[in-house]
């Protein structure tokens, strides 16, 4: 039951990309192609699960006054791990090297991705280990799904392909530009809010069970 609630929260009711609108920098930058979105989503999910795990283990040890620096140190460690891991995997396969290069500066910037610190602060720092890992997993899935969908739409419209497979020659280059990123993402959020409101009104899905995270990131 609790797992179902967490899954609904992470993927629909509190979707980090579409409902909370956190971590927008990497969403806008890495949604140029579906595969880049998937790669970024996987990297963020990994960091989210690991940091939630360690923070919930240490939640009674970390003093309240220095918790933010402690969280950032833990997150930075796992981001370094992901960066090294991706670089190692990239030396084995050209496709992963492509994603690694596309991420560029946004790979180290996962450290300051608002979602991770927000989940650490609002969930992992006062929940049990199992629940925190679950929360990290579902939040990561919600982020990855949104980012991959956005990437797929932009890739189909702007490049006439999906996951690198060419579909047709009809291309609107606008969708590959930064302006296209902003507008597509804006329309995505509006559409999500519209559909979500419809469903809530019809099925009484109920609002979010977990309080909106109070985040230090603005």
């Amino acid at each position: 039951m609790k797992v179902k609630e967490l899954a609904l929260d992470g993927i629909v009711r509190q979707n980090p990309a579409l409902k909370l609108v956190l971590g927008t920098c990497s969403i806008l930058a890495l949604s140029n192609e579906a595969i880049n979105g998937l790669g970024m989503g996987a990297a963020v999910t990994f960091v989210l699960i690991c940091s939630n795990l360690v923070i919930s283990i240490l939640r009674n040890i970390i003093p309240d006054k220095v918790r933010i620096p402690a969280f950032i140190l833990i997150i930075a460690t796992f981001v370094t791990v992901v960066k090294m891991l991706l670089y190692y995997l990239g030396s084995k396969s050209a496709a992963i090297m492509g994603i690694y290069n596309a991420m560029g500066v946004f790979l180290p910037l996962i450290v300051v991705n608002c979602i991770i610190l927000a989940r650490a602060e609002s969930f992992a720092s006062h929940n049990t280990i199992g629940l925190s890992v679950m929360d990290g997993l579902f939040m990561g899935i919600g982020y990855t799904v949104a980012l991959t969908l956005l990437g797929a739409v932009r890739e189909i419209l702007g490049n006439g392909s999906i996951f690198g497979v060419a579909l047709w020659n009809f291309k609107i280059a606008f969708f590959t530009t930064p302006a296209g990123a902003f507008m597509t993402y804006g329309m995505f959020i509006a559409l999500f809010t519209f559909v979500y409101d419809r469903i809530v009104r019809k099925q009484k899905l109920g609002g979010a069970k977990i309080l909106k995270p109070k985040t230090t990131e603005v």
Binding site: V21, A179, F182, G186, A190, L191
Partner: peptide
């Protein structure tokens, strides 16, 4: 449904077009 973030994103998109 366009209030808040979506309309800001569209505005930012128009700005990005100008900067392009």
């Amino acid at each position: 449904h366009m209030r808040g973030f979506p309309i800001s994103m569209i505005t930012a998109g128009i700005m990005a077009m100008a900067f392009y």
